[in-house]
Design a protein around this nucleic acid. Structure first.
Length: 280
DNA sequence: AGTGTATCCTGCAGGC
DNA sequence: TGCCTGCAGGATACAC
C-alpha cells in the first residue's frame, strides 16, 4: 500500500495527536508484526514520551524519550489510527495488530489486514544504521539529478526495479515509479544504465511532481489505504497509467499496456515510452 | 550482480 | 450461491 505520499499524509495527521503524549500501555494482538517478543516490545515503549513524528522513505518514525525510536513500516495494508481526531468510518480498524494506550486516555492502533507491516522499537543508533542503509529522499533538494544519474548508470537492472529498491532511493513504490516513468517518457523495463542525463533530469522532476501532487491529494487509495482520520486519499483519480491496462494514453491516445517483471505489474504507454530510444 | 520464484497474510473481483 | 483463480501500494530469502 503505502508509499512515500501515503506515509507523509499519515505522519501529518498523526503529529498533532501524538507529540507530547506518553505511551502508557501496549496490547499486542498479532505478534507477527513485531521483531521481538510482545513482552520485550512493551517494556521498550511503555512509559516513553513521543517527542516527534516523522517519515523516512515509506516508514513512519516516532522519536521517543530515552533515545529510542518507534519505526513503523506499513507494508501493503498497514494503517495508523489515533482515536483523537479520528472521524472516519468506525470500521477502519478491523484488523488491529498493536494497540497503544496514551496518557491522555486516547489510543493509537496499528491495523494491518495482511500483516506484512512491522512495528519496531530501536535504539537511536540502530535506527541510524537502518536509515543509513536507505537511499536518498527524492524530495530532498540536496539530492540532484546528477546524483540520480550516477546511481542509475551503475546498474544493469530495469529502471522500474531500480526505483523500487529502497537502498537506491527511498519511498518510491510501484504506483509512483510507474507514474514517474510515464511522465519522463522512459520505458519501465529499460536498463537503468541506459537512462541518459537528460532523461535522469526528467525522471527526477517527474518523481517530485508525482510525489508532491500525491501528498497534496492525501495519497492514493486503491483499496486499503486510509489516512490518520480513516479517510481515503484522492490521488487515484489522477493516475495516468497505473492500473490502466488497455486504456488509451491520456497524452497521445496510444495504448497503455500492463507487463510483469520483477514479480510485479508495470504499466506504460506503447508510444510515449518506447523500449528503445529514437523518438520522444 | 541480476532475476525469477517463493514466502509471509487476507480479501476481493471475476469466471464458471 | 459456491468454488476457483488471480491479483494487490512491500520486503526478504533463496537458487541459479
Amino acid at each position: 500500500m503505502p508509499e512515500l505520499p501515503e506515509a507523509e499524509t499519515i505522519v501529518r495527521g498523526l503529529r498533532p495527536a501524538l507529540v507530547g503524549r506518553t505511551i502508557s500501555a501496549t496490547r499486542v494482538v498479532h505478534p507477527d508484526v513485531l521483531r521481538e517478543s510482545a513482552g520485550g516490545f512493551a517494556r521498550q515503549v511503555e512509559g516513553r514520551e513521543i517527542r516527534d513524528v516523522g517519515r523516512r522513505g515509506k516508514n513512519v518514525v516516532m522519536g521517543l524519550s530515552g533515545d529510542r525510536v518507534l519505526a513503523v513500516n506499513l507494508g501493503m495494508t498497514g494503517r495508523l489510527l489515533p482515536s483523537a481526531g479520528f472521524v472516519g468510518d468506525s470500521d477502519a480498524a478491523r484488523h488491529p495488530a498493536v494497540r497503544f494506550g496514551l496518557d491522555d486516555g486516547e489510543t493509537l492502533v496499528f491495523d494491518d489486514t495482511r500483516r506484512f507491516g512491522t512495528v519496531e522499537c530501536l535504539s537511536d543508533e540502530e535506527w541510524r544504521g537502518r536509515s543509513d542503509r536507505m537511499g536518498p529522499e527524492p524530495l530532498d533538494p540536496t539530492h540532484t539529478a546528477e546524483d540520480l544519474w550516477t546511481g542509475l548508470r551503475a546498474s544493469r537492472s530495469p529502471v522500474r526495479s531500480w526505483l523500487l529498491d529502497q537502498r537506491r532511493i527511498a519511498g518510491v513504490g510501484n504506483i509512483y515509479a510507474n507514474e514517474a516513468l510515464f511522465l519522463a517518457g522512459v520505458h519501465p523495463a529499460r536498463r537503468a544504465r541506459s537512462v541518459t542525463r537528460d532523461e535522469a533530469v526528467a525522471l527526477l522532476a517527474a518523481l517530485r511532481k508525482v510525489l508532491e501532487e500525491a501528498i497534496e491529494a492525501g495519497g492514493t487509495t486503491l483499496r486499503d489505504y486510509r489516512d490518520a482520520t480513516g479517510g481515503e486519499g484522492r490521488y487515484a483519480r489522477q493516475l495516468l497509467v497505473y492500473g490502466r491496462d488497455g486504456e488509451p494514453c491520456v497524452r497521445c491516445g496510444g495504448e497503455v499496456r500492463r507487463s510483469v517483471f520483477g514479480g510485479r505489474s508495470a504499466f506504460h504507454c506503447l508510444a510515449c515510452q518506447p523500449r528503445r530510444r529514437g523518438r520522444r
